[in-house]
Amino acid sequence: MLDLRRLQLLREFAEQGTIAATAASLGYTPSAVSQQLAALEREVGAQLLDRSARSAELTETGRLLAEQAEQILAMVEAAESVLAEQRGVVTGRVTVTAFPTGAVAFAPRLAERLRRHSAMQLVLRQTMEGSGVRQVSAGEADIALVDIWTGRPPDTGAGKIRHELLLRDPMVLAVPEDHQLADPARPVELHRLVGESWIAAPQGEPSRYGTDALLADVGGAPAAAWEFEGLATILGLVSRGIGIAAVPALALTAGTTGLAFRRLPGEAPARGVYASVRAASLRRPAIDVTLRALRRAAGDVQRDLAEVLDRIPGA
Rank of each mutant, 00 (worst) to 15 (best):
E77A: 05
E77D: 12
E77F: 00
A78V: 07
A78P: 10
A78C: 04
A79V: 08
E80I: 01
L83W: 04
E85Y: 01
V89W: 03
V89E: 15
V90I: 15
V90M: 11
T91P: 06
V94G: 00
T95R: 09
A98S: 09
A98N: 07
A98P: 10
A98Q: 05
G102N: 13
A107E: 15
A107T: 15
A107M: 10
R109C: 04
L114Y: 06
R116N: 05
R116Q: 13
M120R: 01
Q121R: 08
L122Y: 03
L124M: 15
R125T: 11
R125W: 00
T127H: 00
E129S: 04
E129T: 02
E129G: 04
E129P: 13
G130L: 03
Q135S: 06
S137L: 02
S137G: 02
E140V: 08
A144Y: 05
A144G: 07
A144C: 11
V146M: 07
I148V: 15
P154S: 04
K160G: 09
H163F: 01
E164I: 03
L166R: 06
L167W: 14
R168E: 15
R168N: 06
R168I: 11
P170D: 03
A174Q: 08
P176G: 10
D178A: 08
H179A: 01
Q180N: 04
Q180T: 14
A182P: 11
P184E: 12
P184K: 05
P184W: 09
P187L: 09
V188I: 13
L190V: 13
R192V: 12
R192L: 14
L193C: 10
V194K: 02
S197R: 15
W198N: 12
I199G: 03
I199R: 03
A200N: 09
A200Q: 12
A201H: 09
P202F: 03
G204T: 11
P206G: 04
S207Q: 12
S207Y: 06
R208D: 14
Y209I: 15
G210L: 13
D212V: 15
D212F: 05
D212I: 10
A213Y: 01
